[in-house]
């Protein structure tokens, strides 16, 4: 089998699992994204790269327009491509009293990977904020994911990781400090999104001597898919480490979610993966 770098240099679809855990879908008011809501073009780009699946939240997540309508935009896309697009329920600290209702509404729509929250243009909050507790309890009950743009209060993040052990917390943008915390908190992951510096991820794998704490993310489809894959494909790390970050680590998270067994989203990928499921 060819290496990831060889596939990328040839512009050929990857044949190993490729799951992007940090995507967005919807219109953007402050920038021009050509064909931003063209579902067919997004799926076609995923096909060209060999990207199996993108976990997507809303555009302008939690700070623009009607939150339910923004979530419906993503969930409608996921309904049209249920094995390729897995939606996050996007929530906001603007409207804390309605977050639980919105989360339950989204969960009732079908497979949902968890909750995404951002920081821009909304009141400050931490994982210990009162309104967060009911959200995290629901995520724990369903063994789902909580993705945040950036965890500003690390002490409260650690507290939440310990209290909600069945929730997997993902830091949305590359941060070596999160990887350090993940060594002592098995339910914490770092997303590689925007690891801009040359071979930052390869250096991080070498520093940690492991690759199981990182998940590829790109902000696709606000930006192109190469914004995630490119930092990994050329990196100075073993091929197994690249494959972990590009897909295997995310597959392991999917496997622990109850709906993954019945939804069919993992069909086909498990055989390629060769994960020891015991």
């Amino acid at each position: 089998m060819k290496t990831t770098r060889e596939y990328v240099c040839a512009g050929q679809p990857l044949e190993t699992p490729f799951i992007d855990v940090h995507g967005h879908f919807g219109p953007w008011p402050d920038t021009f994204i050509p064909h931003t809501v063209d579902q067919g073009r997004i799926i076609a780009e995923m096909d060209r790269y060999g990207c199996d699946m993108v976990w997507m939240s809303a555009s302008n997540p939690g700070y623009a327009g009607d939150l339910a309508a923004k979530n419906d935009c993503v969930f409608d896309f996921a309904a049209a491509y249920p094995e390729r697009i897995i939606p996050y329920c996007t929530l906001s600290s603007h409207d804390p009293q309605n977050n639980v209702k919105e989360l339950k509404r989204c969960l009732a729509r079908g497979p949902c990977i968890g909750v995404k929250m951002h920081r821009y243009s909304q009141p400050s909050y931490t994982m210990r904020s009162d309104f967060m507790q009911a959200i995290l309890e629901i995520l724990a009950e369903h063994r789902l994911v909580y993705l945040n743009h950036v965890f500003e209060n690390v002490i409260d993040l650690e507290w939440a990781c310990d209290k909600y052990a069945d929730v997997v917390f993902i830091a949305g943008h590359f941060n070596p400090g999160i990887n350090d915390l993940a060594l002592s908190h098995p339910n914490l992951r770092d997303c590689t999104c925007a690891a801009m510096h040359p071979d930052a991820i390869g250096a991080e794998v070498q520093r940690l001597k492991r690759s199981d704490t990182m998940l590829v993310g790109s902000d696709f489809s606000q930006v192109h898919l190469g914004f995630g894959l490119g930092m990994i494909a050329y990196g100075n790390m073993a091929e197994d480490d690249k494959r972990n970050i590009l897909g295997n680590n995310a597959l392991r998270l999917l496997e622990r979610i109850p709906w993954s067994d019945t939804s069919g989203v993992l069909a086909g990928m498990r055989e390629d993966l060769g994960i020891d499921r015991k």
Binding site: V8, C9, A10, G11, A44, E45, R48, Y49, A195, M196, H197, P198, D199, A200, H224, L225, G226, F227, L229, G230, M231, I232, A233, Y234, G235
Partner: peptide, 18 residues
């Protein structure tokens, strides 16, 4: 944009552009 950025950001994109 090396050394400020990872060249793979751009080479990958162009390799896969339609």
């Amino acid at each position: 944009h090396f050394p400020a950025e990872d060249p793979g950001l751009y080479t990958t994109w162009l390799n896969y552009a339609k």
